[in-house]
Design a binder for these strands. Structure first.
Length: 331
DNA sequence: GCCTTATGCTCAC
DNA sequence: TGAGCCTAAGGCT
């Protein structure tokens, strides 16, 4: 369930573990990874990350595209391969490593690359296999298809590869030229890539932006500030496998690292008081995703706040109520 | 054990 | 705009 920060972290680790090595690429038992044979036994040149997309380059026209979607995740290890399960989709393994694998004493074979306390259980260079579960896509692209995908993606705050994705100008132009709300534009991967629902909500709060502002009414200075802020924010990425967006001085505990419940200013904090002004955080569904905001700090209007779900209401109840309300308008 | 939710995205209508 | 796809964790009964 990653945003761009984690995708780039996986790319770094998988490069360290596998770039320049010959890999065995195995489909899972559910046989849904139809392209495995195309890259099995080939040497991996490098791993590329752009936005939320990963490309494992085995050749000019052999790029294994992986998109984790909302549920996908990697597990990695240096010991025995995990037991096959129905959900398993793909395994990339150093060729011959099944004969030479070593188990890590005292650690489960499927230990994640980063333990809950933030420590690295073993260096990326020692990783011998990675296992992919539940991705939206895991298929081999040729060069043309890969390039077409990259062309479609907006600039990436962590982007260096390929050329152009580190230039924010397209982000500014795309926002300023549209009437769509800034909240929706930040989630649009053709406008800006790598940003998901957490960073969307948190960036808007950090810059005190009304999420319902049409793109063409947003100050260019705000856009520049959001871009500038997003780079270190995504680089800081995850602490203990949590995305942390609050500054220490703003947290009730003033503690570092952030305590549970203090990682975000607004994301999933609906009904709770804003850390800065004490006003209750609001939420509502925007284009199928839940948006969170502080009505006071982000200066939303009474009409906009009125459309928020009732405090404490479950998402299901809120969506049902909204649907019923909409239906009522037309009857 | 069941229900709900979640850091995405595509496609059909 | 809504349905559909995919997995796992946490809260509830």
């Amino acid at each position: 369930m990653p945003e761009g920060n984690e995708i780039h972290r996986w790319a770094d680790r998988h490069n360290a573990a596998f770039a320049g090595r010959t890999l065995n690429v195995l489909p899972g038992p559910n046989h849904r990874f139809h392209d495995a044979h195309m890259v099995d036994g080939k040497k991996l040149r490098r791993v590329i990350a752009v936005g939320k997309h990963l490309g494992y380059e085995f050749g000019d026209d052999l790029i294994l595209h992986v998109h984790l979607g909302r549920f996908g995740d990697w597990t990695e290890g240096c010991g025995k391969l995990p037991e096959p399960k129905g959900a398993l989709r793909a395994i990339l393994q150093r060729a011959g490593s099944s004969k030479t694998h070593r188990s890590v004493k005292g650690q489960p074979h499927n230990l994640r690359c980063q333990a809950d306390d933030g420590t690295q259980p073993f260096p990326a260079e020692d990783v011998q296999w990675i296992e992919l579960r539940g991705p939206t896509d895991c298929s081999v692209y040729d060069r043309a298809k890969w390039e077409k995908l990259l062309e479609r993606l907006g600039p990436d705050p962590l982007g260096v590869e390929p050329k152009g994705h580190d230039n924010p100008q397209h982000f500014y132009d795309a926002v300023l030229g549209r009437k769509t709300t800034i909240a929706e534009l930040l989630m649009d991967q053709t406008v800006l890539s790598g940003i998901g629902n957490i960073y969307r909500a948190e960036l808007l709060f950090r810059h005190r932006v009304n999420p319902f502002t049409p793109g063409n009414e947003v100050d260019i200075k705000i856009l520049r500030a959001i871009w500038k802020d997003s780079v270190p924010l995504l680089k800081a990425g995850m602490v203990d496998r949590r995305i942390v967006c609050t500054q220490r001085a703003d947290r009730p505990s003033r503690k570092e690292p952030a305590l549970r419940g203090e990682e975000h200013y607004v994301y999933r904090r609906h009904g709770k008081p804003c850390f800065l002004c004490g006003e209750r955080i609001l939420h509502r569904d925007i284009a199928g995703r839940t948006l969170y905001w502080c009505p006071k700090d982000q200066n939303t209007t009474a009409a906009e706040n009125k459309r928020a779900y009732t405090h404490g209401m479950s998402l299901r109840a809120a969506r049902a109520a909204e649907k019923q309300k909409r239906a009522g308008i037309f009857t």
